[in-house]
Deep mutational scan, measured.
Amino acid sequence: MGFKLLSKLLVYLTASIMAIASPLAFSVDSSGEYPTVSEIPVGEVRLYQIADGVWSHIATQSFDGAVYPSNGLIVRDGDELLLIDTAWGAKNTAALLAEIEKQIGLPVTRAVSTHFHDDRVGGVDVLRAAGVATYASPSTRRLAEVEGNEIPTHSLEGLSSSGDAVRFGPVELFYPGAAHSTDNLIVYVPSASVLYGGCAIYELSRTSAGNVADADLAEWPTSIERIQQHYPEAQFVIPGHGLPGGLDLLKHTTNVVKAHTNRSVVE
């Protein structure tokens, strides 16, 4: 069995187990497998329904001669939608809004960016022009300005110390501490036991640490421990890039980060 097929099978099995364990909360999309990078042309966006009122959005972007996937989250909030992270750029984010209108038909009224990198804030200006209120932590807003990236308009308070959590509509926002970046936030959907790890969490097929220019490698494993301790009931975990899975993604990420750190020390 090929690795790609095995990865998709694991996603399907995880979703099936969740649907059985929580039949009222989960209505997993039966329309197909989780979209992969090879299936999404740059400039297009796919939506994948995880649970009743919960979707991931998947886009792709060219970077350094390669094409990478990027995940975000959409959560229903009454007759409105909360968006977590842009679709990595203005063109993708405009396509995301169009796809949401086509498939869901509810307005996106608020959006949260989970850290300051372009795959999370690139497209904020498109959201703002569409009347979406954009939010991020003060740290993310400051770092985005320093980096020359787009800056969300509103500040999220109460997320300055490791372990801080605040309720934001249908989700809980959690600051686990520094990891992929010093400002990275985690998003949890309690009604569906869905954990969105953003770039602080890796997919299972990833074996290298990737972009760690703004990471705190020493603190990252401790931050992941905080996530595990705060959300032990999480059933569906979405990484910032690639295929979702279960809580095993947290341990896998820790292993990859520690291996990278150990290699760096040896070198």
Rank of each mutant, 00 (worst) to 15 (best):
L73A: 05
A21T: 14
V132D: 02
T86I: 07
I58H: 08
S137K: 05
D214I: 04
I100W: 02
A98H: 15
W55V: 02
L204I: 13
A259L: 09
T140R: 03
I151G: 03
P170L: 05
K4N: 13
A59G: 14
E101M: 09
I20E: 15
I58P: 00
G78N: 11
E101Y: 11
V11G: 07
I100A: 06
R226E: 03
D125S: 11
A98G: 14
S113P: 06
V166I: 11
D29P: 10
P239D: 00
A234M: 06
A111N: 06
L82Y: 06
L185T: 02
A200W: 02
F3T: 10
S162K: 14
P138W: 08
V11F: 10
P244C: 01
N184T: 02
D85W: 00
W88A: 00
V124G: 05
Q228W: 11
F236Q: 10
G78I: 08
F174A: 01
T93P: 01
A234N: 03
G242R: 05
K251Y: 12
L243E: 15
A59R: 04
L13I: 15
P138C: 05
T182C: 05
V266N: 13
R167C: 07
G148C: 04
E203W: 01
V112E: 04
P69E: 15
G122Y: 06
P23A: 12
Y188Q: 00
E80H: 09
L47P: 08
L47I: 12
A136V: 04
T134V: 04
G105L: 07
A130H: 14
V121Y: 04
P35V: 08
G198T: 05
F236K: 11
R76T: 08
P107K: 15
A129V: 09
E101R: 14
H260K: 12
Y34R: 08
A15W: 07
I227P: 02
I20L: 11
G210Q: 07
V146W: 12
P23T: 11
A51F: 07
S56V: 15
E101P: 08
G53A: 09
V121S: 01
V67D: 15
D183G: 03
K251R: 13
Y196S: 01
H230F: 13
S264L: 11
G89N: 05
R46V: 10
V265P: 14
A51M: 07
G242P: 04
V124Y: 03
S38Y: 12
G169R: 05
P69L: 15
S62L: 07
E33H: 09
A218S: 13
L156V: 09
F26W: 15
G123F: 02
A94S: 14
S161Y: 12
H57Q: 06
E225M: 11
E80G: 10
L247S: 13
F174E: 00
D29M: 10
Y68M: 08
G240I: 06
R141K: 14
V189A: 05
L250R: 01
P244L: 06
A133N: 10
H57W: 00
T182H: 11
A51I: 07
L250Y: 05
I186Q: 02
P190K: 08
A129N: 15
P190I: 05
I151F: 08
Q49T: 10
E150N: 05
V256S: 03
T140Y: 05
A259Y: 09
S208Q: 11
A136Q: 03
Q229T: 12
N149I: 07
L127K: 02
Q229P: 05
T254M: 12
Q229V: 13
P170G: 06
Q103W: 11
D214C: 05
T60N: 10
A95I: 12
V42H: 10
V266F: 15
T207M: 12
V45D: 05
N71W: 00
A129L: 10
L73V: 05
A98P: 06
W55E: 00
L106Q: 11
